[in-house]
Amino acid sequence: MEHSTRLPLVSIVTINYNSKKETLELIKSLEGTTFENWELIVVDNASEESPLKDIKKLNPSVTVIESGQNLGFAGGNNLALRHCKGEYIFFVNNDTELDSNCLSTLVKTAQHLTEVAVISPKFQYYHSDGLLEYAGCTNINRFTARNRAIGHLEKSEKYSGLLETHYAHGGGMLVPKRIIEEVGPMEADFFLYYEEMDWCERIRRAGYKVYCQRDALIYHKESASVGKMSPLKTYYMNRNRILFMKRNYPFPKIIPFFFFYSFVSFPKNFLGYMIKGKQKHLRALYRGVFSHLNSKLTY
């Protein structure tokens, strides 16, 4: 155990993509944090309308990086790293708002644990009566490539304290900069979804641990920039589900998953979209799966 009373600099990184309203609300929520030593870096992933002017009007100290193209979640966050001066990097979704003590609690925890690599706060749905989204999660199921969020849709007050867990929540992750320099950044090829799980697998293989600090709270407004059931989500959830398993469960460990996906998951989703007449989702499903055989099948 290591104990420190020094207040380190935290670089807060968030991605904006056609969601200026949510980004501005996040910036406003940060003004109420009890943690005082932080900088904010916003990466705009080639939005139709640049948020630069409005962000600077609200808080001139914010660093805004305009990527010029949509780099996705992992690519956008990786772009920000070269601009981060902090000892810790806090990756946070722009469709969230932090409880005033969230960042202080996360940093204090990180300073007390020598083996820590990633810490996520507890996630509560913003538009709910204290219902949880995430308080840690289970390991991935090697047959289905799915896992379960602990505490999902349960009352927030049921969960407190520090928990070692398998995966962080990509919507809020505090990571020491030295860990990123050692292990490397998130894999940009994921673009959207599964990238934080893949990163946690690499970090744990390097000998570090992943935690959920359930005494730190963040409020999540769901997928404000993507949509709950968009074809974009269908494409990347299926493409990256396979990509994650290929990267982390090499042959022959991946064989049970391929049987399950080929004979259960894919047919079920295909028939479901076909019966409901969701042609855009059918196309997204097909292109997501078969992009592993033909790289030209992008979204």
Rank of each mutant, 00 (worst) to 15 (best):
S160I: 03
E196V: 12
M237H: 05
P176S: 08
F290D: 07
E2G: 03
A149R: 04
L153P: 09
K28T: 13
T298A: 13
F290N: 01
D44V: 08
N37T: 05
P231V: 06
K85E: 10
A216G: 03
S156V: 04
T144A: 00
D54R: 10
T14S: 11
G72N: 09
E195H: 09
I41M: 05
M197S: 13
Y194N: 08
S223D: 15
H292A: 05
R6S: 14
Y17T: 04
N59Y: 09
L132V: 14
N147M: 01
G32T: 15
K158A: 01
R202V: 04
S265D: 14
S120H: 08
F263D: 06
I254G: 02
S225T: 13
A117T: 03
Y236H: 08
Q111P: 01
K56E: 11
Y126E: 09
Y286Q: 07
K21V: 12
Y167M: 02
E31W: 15
L106I: 06
L282Y: 06
L132D: 00
F258G: 06
V175S: 05
A284N: 03
P231W: 01
E196W: 03
P250Y: 09
Y208S: 05
D129G: 07
F270P: 08
N77K: 13
I27D: 07
E182V: 00
F190P: 09
N16K: 13
E49T: 14
N93T: 03
N45Y: 09
F190E: 04
K108S: 15
L162V: 14
T5H: 14
F270D: 05
S29L: 12
Y125D: 07
S291D: 04
V116S: 06
C137A: 11
G171I: 01
Y235V: 02
E87D: 10
I254S: 09
F90I: 01
N94K: 04
L113I: 13
T5G: 03
G172E: 00
Q124D: 02
C200W: 08
Q213C: 14
V42C: 06
I89P: 06
H292E: 10
E154P: 02
L7I: 15
V183F: 06
T144L: 01
L297N: 10
K278F: 00
C137D: 07
K85N: 13
E22Y: 11
K246M: 14
Y286M: 11
Q124K: 11
E49N: 12
C102K: 02
E97T: 15
M173D: 08
R239K: 15
T234R: 00
D215Q: 02
V107Y: 06
F73D: 14
F90N: 00
R148Q: 05
K57Q: 10
K278G: 01
G72D: 07
R82W: 03
F35H: 12
L271N: 08
S265Y: 13
A216I: 02
G171M: 00
G161N: 00
T109S: 13
H220Y: 10
L243T: 12
R178K: 14
K228Q: 10
K228P: 00
I55N: 04
K122L: 05
S230D: 09
T23V: 12
E181Y: 00
K228I: 05
M274D: 01
A80G: 03
H83P: 01
S120Q: 05
K155F: 01
